[in-house]
Structures are given as structure tokens and as C-alpha cells.
Nucleic acid binder design. Structure first.
Length: 834
RNA sequence: GGGGCGAUGGCGGAACUGGUAGACGCGCCAGUCUUAGGAACUGGUCUCGCAAGAGGUGAAGGUUCGAGUCCUUUUCGCCCUACCA
């Protein structure tokens, strides 16, 4: 067998790839983008999968005649750099640049078709300068506001977190229980686009339904109305929000959040304060929240029912949130489960107002549809009609208004951190806040900082902090907060179109040509945050700057699954890396060092904490980049999780070796006799495989493409032995090599080189004339009895003749009466017999 | 609690709009060749059966000439989300 030396050959082609880009003079544009990597220092298998998928698409589109943009850069700001700096006494800038250098060389080892001339980092002042400009534009357009609000304070990271960064009441990174703290913060007013962000989801046909649904739920639009309930014996009102105004005749209590303004009246009430404490104690775990008991505090106050001569008690309740709606609700126990639980506990009335067509007492709330009962003028209407009627009634009585509510909140972007984009605002002595003059940009991050100072190092950097307002010469103080790093990644895809443009964030002409991104590829973990923010930025820029002419940044989105591996624990309960264990047999796994027994845990997403990671660089060095790419694409559909297996990559390597050997053998094959039947059969099958590969690439089913290559290899080896011309074999192995370029670019190029192929930058066309014969199924009573090869569009009569003259199905038809024949062109014929 | 996705051999997974179930790979079994090795090659591998054949896609029912695919019910698993009024 002819050896293939991937170490030497891959390096050789990587030099070629870095010179050769995917641009073409002619052809439609195609912008292929993978999600922005954070420069953590080393690539992991998740990156390998992401960029391999992207590379397949980029190269495939290029070979099919597209002018392809395939850039890469670095999402380089963020907390890890600061933490690492403290540990290693290395400046965040140096730590980040080192990491970038290392990761870039690792990515190059994968043989990706990236145009590195477009590379930039978000921590480059050339980049964040333009970001500051956009921020100021947004500020002038009313898309930025400053609000004094309660924020999610992470006591470990000593910073504010966005709502989206709080998971189960804990910081997404530190896992510390998040505290509430009142701070003045900068907000991007994403809620100004709530409706557009929601409605435009429908335009995104190339997005997974799942992601669109997650965004829809996150925006959380709901219809209903506000109603004012007059507090008995007082002039005050309680304003509530409800989506079920139709159930107002079933109202039996009012529930307020403990933070509701009315709570001021109870500040000196010890019982109330105790109750409030009790509410705050409610656990933060999922389990606790799911089963948290509904508890209330009776205020002793009542409201008047707006349509009945009835008093309704007011409670404070732990399940009412201040930051949604008005922080107050009316409870209709019969038709809301929470209200039902609450009413049971405090013995409040349960009045059925929607007919559930069941007799007797309710055992749980009925939330379905039906006709209204016990509801005066609403009786007999169904739920939606009742809603309409009651809302107009409420509006005409002037006690409330129709209202649409969103769950989406404005995006708090202030971070009390050093390693981020400085917010280009200054505070004047009179207390006003103004943007930095645009010609003063960038507001540069100072290098000389003391990272060991408490809190934000920018706070304790007087030279940087104290400045003057250039327009008036007034003394001023800089904003020392920096921007959330999600801001950095909300427009980088625009910058890639013209990364060196100096005058403005982007060259309009370039944007108009390249945007939107034709294919965006990344992880599902960005389904909400990053993708929603990017959509918001695009809309913000489009609406006010009118520069980009698009309202959605990503035409097609693909979310890949994770890379998984088993994890191992030794007898002392310590996690072990895969290379610290030995598999004795299918059941026994032992530790390398002392041969002690190891417990094996089922595969899950690779993570450093469980040490179930595989270093891509080692795999590339041992088996070659092509083998790693091949394996990661071959084993599972790309949107599903894939399980890394060493034996899988070993066999990938072996197969690629065989492909090389096949090319070599064809190149040196002795000429054989020519057999026309063989020629035709060989070529027609190859054409059906080309068809299969085209379809599977277009559908992102690369595992199916790869299966087809295995079949192709088997097809070639069986025909190598038969009578078939060398020219045919050579012609078609060249086509196959071209089909392999997107998957294994090094090997494919080397093979084409071996065969002295000159025209490599084109995709093989299917020769339709060779796809005339098809497999056709013969069924008897719905059971398949034979498969025959026939010409496309053969007539029933022709098929009948073939069946009766010699097919395996013939014997089933003898002496039988055919009562019906079902014929489906090019597929089956089904004889129904008695 | 709400929402979504899924269930096919020992394993990962194929099967385009209903039309050859199990492609392809891994693993396993047997054989060949061997400086007997975790190399290479050949054959086998859903179940029952010597065979012809029959059964078979989590379970039950339905529609159809024909169901892994469509409908109803149900069980299990995974993911997201959360007192959102």
C-alpha cells in the first residue's frame, strides 16, 4: 500500500490555502460566518466541529461558483482575561494576544479556508473606536438611556449581570447567588424594537423553528388590559394587569408584590416585614421554585368590584413579581392554578365563570375555553368574545385600558470591569452626562492599571478618570464602566465586510454587497442573547443610520450539536482525563498508573471540570487534520450531539489512507479490456452518488455525504478488478476528489495533484443521461417481492411483461386473479391478488 | 407548571414528498496471509427457521393497495423555560 504522509502533505497545502482565497470575479456573493470565538488559549472540539461545518459550506459554495466571504476574528474582551492576569501577573492585553496567536495557529492546522486578512479583535482600539461611535449615535437617537435600577449584582465577580446572565438566581459564570443592588446603569433600549423583533421572526425562513420559538417566548408578548380597582374607604386605586379580563366576575382577591408601592404603608408592620423576609427566602433552586408554596399576607384592606356590589380582599403574595405588569393582579381561582392554590389556602371564594361542562366542584383550575357563566352581561359569550366585550366596557367606564405587555426588558450594558470597551460618556460638574466628542474617539483603555485594586481598576486610575469636556473646557469625570461584551459581538459581522475602514464603522458599499450573512453557524447556547442583540443592533443601525439597508443580519442559521465524551473517576472520586485510563475489555477500565478500577460515566458535553476533553491539537498531530475533520462530520447529523471516539478517528485516518492508495493504484493501473456494460453501470452509479452528495450537503447532512464516500470507495475497488478502462476510472476518481475538497481539503488537493488535474476549482456536474435507469419495486399485496432495474418512465405494459417473463414475483402471480394494480411511476407496482 | 424535540440492531445512525427498513461506519464472529501483532485482506452479523418463508422501527389502536413516515391514545427519555398574571 502506498503510504500517505499527512504530516508533510497537510503542512504543504496549508501554505497554499493561506495564499488562495475563495473570492471570484463573477458569481453571486456568499457570506459564510461561524460564531465569534473567545480567545481562551486553546481550541476545543466544539470549535473543530463548528469551523469544519463552516469550511465545508464555504468551500462547497466556492466550488459551485460563488464569491465567498469567510472571515475570522476574536471576541477578545471579557472577564477571564482579568482573572487570568491576576493569577499569572500578565496584562490582560498580553494574555489575550498570546491566546489569539496560539489559537490562530491551531485553527490554521485544520486547513480552513479563512481569509485571515480580515482578522480583527474586539479589543483592538480600531474596532472599539467604532463601537463607541455607534454607542453615541444610539444615544443621540434615544436608543440609550440611563436608569437607576435594581440590578443583578454578582458578589463574586463584583459586577452587574444582565437578566439573561442570571440562571436560577445565580451568576452564569461564578454560580454565586445574585444579590439585588440599586445602581445607575446604562441601558440599550431593545424594547423599542420588541414588536419588530417578534414580527420579523416570521421572515427568518432559514432559521431553526426552535430558535425562533425561544426568542418568541423570550420577548413574551401578551395581550390584556389594565384595570383600576378602587380601594374601599379610600380614594386610592390598585392598578392591575391581566390577560384574562373575561374572568373578572370570578375575581375573589387582589394580590400585590411585596415590592408594590402600597407596601410603604406597612413598613412599620413587623408581621409584614417578617412575611417579606419569608418571601425572599424562597429558594433559588429549580426544585424549590417549582414547589414553592403560595403564601400571602392579608392587608385587611378591600377593593370594590367594578361590576358587582362586592368587596374583594387585598393580599401581598409571594408569587406576584414587581417587574412584570403593574406588580398587582386580581385572582380568579377557578381559572388560574396559582390563584386556585392561593384561594384554597386562605379560604377565598372559587367562582366558576367559564363553563368547563363538568358538574361539581373544581379540583384544579380550568384554563380551557368555553362559554361564560355567572358573569352578568358576559354570559353565553366564549372566552375571546368576552375578552373583547369586557375590555371595551372597562374602557368606556374609564377604569382601565387595553394593553400589550412584553416580557423583554431593556438591556443593561454597564459592567464594573476594566477589560471591556469604555463607555464614551462623561459627567460634568453640574451633574449632566454627555457623550465624548466624536473626534476624541477612541476613549482608549489605559494600559497602566493596578489589577489588584478593589473593584474596577478604572475607578482607581485618576489620570484616566479625570478629564475635561473639550467643547466647554469644563472639568469632567469619565464613565468608568465598560460595555457588556455582548455589545462587541452584536455588530462584528458588519465590520468583517470592511475591517480596515477608518472613517466609519463600515463601508456602506461593502455592507450592501455582502450582507446579510448567508449562512451563520454556531451553538444553540446563543439562541437568545447574542442572536437577539445582533438583530437589535441591525435594526437600530438600519432605522436611524439608514446605512445598511437590511433589517435582519442572518439569513440562514444553523445550530450544531455538542461534542461529547465519557468521563472517568478513580476510586478516590477524582476525575481522570481519557489518556489516564486503559480499557482492558468492554467492561473493565483501569487507571494507567496503578491499575486500580475506574468508574465510567455516560457521554456528556466535554468540559474541563469533568476532564472528559480531547485536545484537538494532539488528535491533529496523531491522525491528521483531515481525519479529525472527517470523523467529526461522519458520526452524527451536525445538529445533534456527537460522541468523540478515538477508534472512530483511527478508522477515519485508515479510510483516508485507502483513498490515497486508490488514487495511486488508478494512476498506475495496467490497462484492461473495455466492457461497455461495465462502463455504463460504473458511471451511472457514480452519478447517483454525486446526486446523493449534493443533496446531503445542501441539507446539512454531512454524515450522509460521508457514508456515500465509503460506498463510492467500495464501488471503485470492486470495479478496479473488472474490465473497465483506465481513462474512465481516472476521469471519475478526479470528480470524486473534487467532491471531497470541502471535507478533506489537504488529501483531496494532493490526490488531484497526483493525477495532474488542472481545473480543480469547479464542482462536478451530474450527467443526467446516466441516471436513466432506476430501481423499481414489485409488490404483491403490498409486500415487496422483487426489485428490478428499468428505464425511467417505463410504462405499465412494459413492466407487466418483465414481471411475467422472469422476475422473482412471477411465481406469486401464477394461478392467481389480479383484482387491482397500483402503479406509481418510477417507484413501485403493486398487484392485489386473490 | 408551561413549551419543544425525540424513541429504528450490541453502538452511532441511513431510509427524498407514505413505496426495497437497517445504507455507511464502529463493534463482534469466522477465515486467509503472516517477522502470529491492537496490521492488511475476504466473508458473515435484526429475530425465528435447515430451507421456502414468517415476524420486525417504544406500546395500543386507526387511515391506506401499502405506514419507521400520516391520525388518535399512551409510556419513556432529552432539551429549553419558569410563580410572566
Amino acid at each position: 500500500m502506498e503510504r500517505y504522509n499527512f504530516q508533510v502533505i497537510e503542512k504543504k497545502w496549508q501554505i497554499e490555502f493561506s495564499k488562495k482565497k475563495l473570492y471570484r470575479e463573477k458569481g453571486n456573493k456568499f457570506y459564510c460566518l461561524e460564531m465569534f470565538p473567545y480567545p481562551s488559549g486553546k481550541i476545543h472540539m466544539g470549535h473543530v466541529r463548528n469551523y469544519t461545518i463552516g469550511d465545508v459550506i464555504a468551500r462547497y459554495k466556492y466550488l459551485n461558483g460563488y464569491n465567498v466571504l469567510h472571515p475570522m476574528g476574536w471576541d477578545a474582551f471579557g472577564l477571564p482575561a482579568e482573572n487570568a492576569s491576576k493569577q499569572n501577573n500578565l496584562h490582560p492585553k498580553d494574555w489575550t494576544n498570546q491566546n489569539i496567536k496560539n489559537m490562530k495557529s491551531q485553527l490554521k492546522m485544520l486547513g480552513l479556508s479563512i481569509d485571515w486578512d480580515l482578522e480583527f479583535s474586539t479589543c483592538d482600539k480600531d474596532y472599539y473606536k467604532h463601537q463607541q461611535e455607534i454607542f453615541i449615535d444610539f444615544f443621540n437617537q434615544g436608543l440609550v438611556s440611563r436608569k437607576e435600577t435594581y440590578v443583578n449584582w454578582d458578589p463574586v465577580e463584583k459586577t452587574v449581570l444582565a437578566n439573561e446572565q442570571v440562571i436560577d438566581g445565580k451568576g452564569w459564570r461564578s454560580n454565586a447567588i445574585v444579590e439585588r443592588k440599586k445602581l445607575s446603569q446604562w441601558f440599550l433600549n431593545i424594547t423599542k424594537f420588541s414588536d419588530e423583533l417578534l414580527e420579523d421572526l416570521e421572515k427568518l425562513e432559514g432559521w431553526p423553528e426552535k430558535v425562533k420559538l425561544m426568542q418568541k417566548n423570550w420577548i413574551g408578548k401578551s395581550f390584556g388590559c389594565e384595570i383600576d380597582f378602587q380601594i374601599d374607604s379610600e380614594k386610592e386605586f390598585v392598578k392591575i394587569f391581566t390577560t384574562r379580563p373575561d374572568t373578572i366576575f370570578g375575581a375573589s382577591f387582589i394580590a400585590l408584590s411585596v415590592d408594590h408601592p402600597l407596601s410603604k404603608n406597612f413598613q412599620s408592620n413587623g408581621n409584614f416585614n417578617e412575611f417579606k423576609k419569608e418571601c425572599n427566602k424562597t429558594g433559588t433552586t429549580e426544585e424549590a421554585l417549582a414547589h414553592a408554596e403560595k403564601i400571602g399576607f392579608d392587608t385587611g384592606l378591600f377593593v370594590k368590584h367594578p361590576f358587582l356590589d362586592k368587596k374583594i380582599p387585598i393580599y401581598f403574595a409571594n408569587f406576584v413579581l414587581m417587574d412584570y405588569g403593574t406588580g398587582a393582579i386580581f385572582g380568579c381561582p377557578a381559572h388560574d392554578q396559582r390563584d386556585f392554590d392561593f384561594a384554597k389556602k386562605y379560604n377565598l371564594g372559587i367562582i366558576k365563570v367559564v363553563d368547563d361542562s363538568k358538574l361539581g366542584e373544581l379540583e384544579e383550575a380550568y384554563t380551557g375555553s368555553g362559554k361564560l357563566i355567572n358573569s352578568d352581561f358576559l354570559n353565553g359569550l366564549d372566552v375571546s368574545a368576552a375578552k373583547e366585550k369586557i375590555i371595551s366596557e372597562i374602557e368606556s367606564k374609564n377604569i382601565g385600558v387595553r394593553k400589550t405587555l412584553y416580557r423583554l426588558k431593556d438591556w443593561g450594558v454597564s459592567r464594573q470591569r476594566y477589560w471591556g470597551c469604555p463607555i464614551p460618556m462623561i459627567y460634568l460638574e453640574d451633574g449632566s452626562v454627555v457623550p465624548v466628542e466624536k473626534n476624541e474617539l477612541p476613549v482608549e483603555l489605559p494600559d497602566d492599571i493596578d489589577l489588584n485594586s478593589q473593584g474596577n481598576p478604572l475607578e482607581s486610575h485618576p489620570k484616566w478618570k479625570y478629564t475635561t469636556h473639550k467643547a466647554t473646557g469644563e472639568k469632567a469625570i469619565r464613565e468608568t464602566d465598560t460595555l457588556d461584551t455582548f455589545v462587541d459581538s452584536s455588530w462584528y459581522f458588519l465590520r468583517f465586510c470592511s475591517p480596515n475602514h477608518q472613517k466609519s464603522p463600515f463601508d456602506e458599499e461593502k455592507i450592501n454587497y455582502w450582507m446579510p450573512v448567508d449562512q451563520y453557524i454556531g451553538g444553540i447556547e446563543h439562541a437568545i442573547l447574542h442572536l437577539l442583540y445582533s438583530r437589535f443592533f441591525t435594526k437600530g443601525l438600519n432605522k436611524f443610520n439608514n446605512k445598511i439597508g437590511i433589517s435582519e443580519p442572518f439569513k440562514n442559521l444553523f445550530t450544531q450539536g455538542m461534542v461529547c465524551h465519557e468521563s472517568y473517576k478513580d476510586k478516590n472520586g477524582n476525575w481522570l482525563y481519557p489518556n489516564e485510563i486503559i480499557k482492558v475489555d468492554s467492561k473493565t477500565v483501569v487507571k494507567k498508573t496503578d491499575k486500580s478500577k475506574v468508574t465510567v460515566f455516560p457521554p456528556e458535553s466535554m468540559s474541563k471540570s469533568k476532564k472528559n476533553t480531547i485536545d484537538p491539537e494532539i488528535m491533529i498531530k496523531d491522525y491528521g487534520a483531515d481525519a479529525v475533520r472527517w470523523f467529526i462530520l461522519s458520526d452524527s447529523p451536525p445538529e445533534k450531539d456527537v460522541q468523540w471516539s478515538d477508534s472512530g478517528v483511527v478508522s477515519s485516518n485508515k479510510f483516508l489512507q485507502k483513498i490515497w492508495d486508490l488514487n495511486y493504484s488508478i494512476n498506475n493501473r495496467k490497462e484492461k479490456k473495455i466492457n461497455q456494460k461495465n462502463e455504463k453501470e460504473f458511471i451511472s452509479t457514480i452519478n447517483s452518488y454525486i446526486n446523493k452528495i449534493n443533496n446531503s450537503i445542501n441539507d446539512f447532512r454531512f454524515n450522509v455525504s460521508i457514508a456515500a464516500f465509503y460506498e463510492i470507495y467500495n464501488h471503485f475497488t470492486s470495479f478496479m478488478k473488472k474490465d473497465l478502462s483506465n481513462s474512465t476510472l481516472k476521469e471519475y476518481i478526479i470528480k470524486i476528489n473534487k467532491l471531497m475538497i470541502p471535507f478533506v481539503p489537504h488529501l483531496a488537493h494532493e490526490c488531484l495533484n497526483l493525477l495532474k488535474c488542472k481545473s480543480i476549482n469547479e464542482w462536478p456536474k451530474i450527467e443526467k443521461s446516466f441516471l436513466e435507469e432506476i430501481n423499481f419495486a414489485i409488490q404483491i399485496n403490498g409486500k415487496t417481492r422483487d426489485i428490478i432495474k428499468i428505464k425511467k418512465n417505463s410504462k405499465v405494459e412494459t413492466i407487466n411483461k418483465i414481471v411475467l417473463s422472469g422476475s422473482k414475483a412471477k411465481k406469486y402471480l401464477e394461478d392467481k386473479k389480479i383484482i387491482k394494480t397500483i402503479f406509481v411511476n418510477n417507484k413501485i407496482i403493486n398487484y392485489i391478488i386473490k
